[in-house]
């Protein structure tokens, strides 16, 4: 029965395993390095140059890109627009999605509840341009469904996307419609994992609903709340597609009317790809990068103090 195995192979077992590991990791690492990390490093570099990518010439200009940028009123307005957008979107989407999740929580174990959840989630998976088209029509001041309903209740009918005051809220309504499903599902996930015993114990204690919410549910879902807030912040500061489409990007007028919806993402896009001013656009990108980084760090700092991790 004995098998005689004559082997002359040297034992290089551990290097072989390393070799295999790196081989398996290589495709992903290459993509990440070339298309994400290299550009991230590159960004800091080109912000300090006057740069013409097509001619491949660059002159070091130090901080002058930033000096030009800070003198542009439009830059400050886009920053304000972005902050306005984020300041409304982050609390609104967090609170509304938590509210919907609480409303759906009890029914979720039944078939009908699950259907409602899927309906709330559906918009999040729809392509933005395809659904923006119908929303443009819903927002139509004259023939749109929205104003028809407002008219039915004898409420004022704003000009929505055509108005400098209402264009931004219109974009926000669309964005809420598109993003709330995700946050709702995240909250629902947290709510269904709440220990039933905790809630029941509180109810037995005769706790009022509001008290229950404030003292029990809110602290227990706080990790997800933090996650949703971070996600919503990063998301709203980077919104592009819906603003581009809803405010007339295909017709060359993204960010209108009268720059009322020109956020940082829109301005970066137009500066670089409409006006071919790459250096200025990358200086703006760097600012946006730092802004998001700072906000995330600040939120982390706050969360470490207030989030209750189980």
């Amino acid at each position: 029965m004995a098998t005689v195995i004559e082997s002359t192979k040297p034992a290089f077992r551990i290097p072989w395993e390393t070799f295999l590991g790196f081989g398996l990791l290589l495709p992903s690492m290459l993509v990440f390095l070339v298309f994400y990390y290299a550009p991230a490093v590159f960004l800091a570099y080109i912000s300090f140059f006057h740069w013409n990518i097509f001619a491949s010439q660059s002159i070091f200009v130090g901080l002058s890109n930033f000096q030009i940028l800070f003198k542009q009123p439009l830059f400050w307005q886009s920053l304000l627009n972005s902050l306005y957008y984020a300041a409304v979107m982050v609390p609104a989407s967090t609170m509304i999605s938590l509210g919907i999740a609480l409303l759906l929580r009890e029914g979720i174990r039944f078939k009908r509840g699950a259907i409602v959840r899927s309906m709330v989630f559906l918009p999040h998976v729809t392509p933005i341009v395809a659904t923006s088209i119908i929303w443009i029509w819903l927002f139509d001041p004259q023939f749109g469904l929205l104003n028809a309903i407002l008219g039915f209740f004898h409420l004022p009918q704003p000009g929505w996307l055509a108005s400098t005051h209402w264009a931004m809220p219109a974009v926000m309504i669309y964005s809420l419609w598109h993003s709330i499903g995700l946050y709702t599902v995240l909250f629902l996930g947290a709510l269904t994992t709440l220990p039933r015993s905790v809630l029941e114990a509180a109810q037995v204690d005769g706790a009022k609903k509001w008290y229950l919410f404030k003292r029990i549910i809110l602290p227990l879902v706080s990790p997800v709340t933090f996650f949703v807030i971070v996600l919503a912040t990063i998301d709203s500061l980077q919104s592009f597609s819906q603003i581009y489409t809803l405010t007339g990007g295909p017709h060359g007028g993204a960010g209108g009317p009268a720059f009322s919806t020109t956020t940082d993402s829109i301005l970066i896009y137009e500066t670089a790809f409409i006006y071919q001013h790459f250096s200025l656009a990358s200086a703006m990108s760097l600012m946006l990068f730092l802004l998001i980084l700072l906000l995330t760090l600040a939120q982390k700092w706050i969360a470490d103090r207030f989030v209750f991790y189980r």
């Binding site: 590991g21 070339v34 550009p39 991230a40 080109i46 990518i53 670089a272 990358s282």
Partner: peptide
Amino acid sequence: RVPGKNLIFYLMLGVMMLPGQALLIPQYVV
């Protein structure tokens, strides 16, 4: 067993943290 696995792990995690809008310009150049 890969040496430096932790570093690779964090490098991959880091990609999720990079804000896409801020990278578009250098990505275009690349």
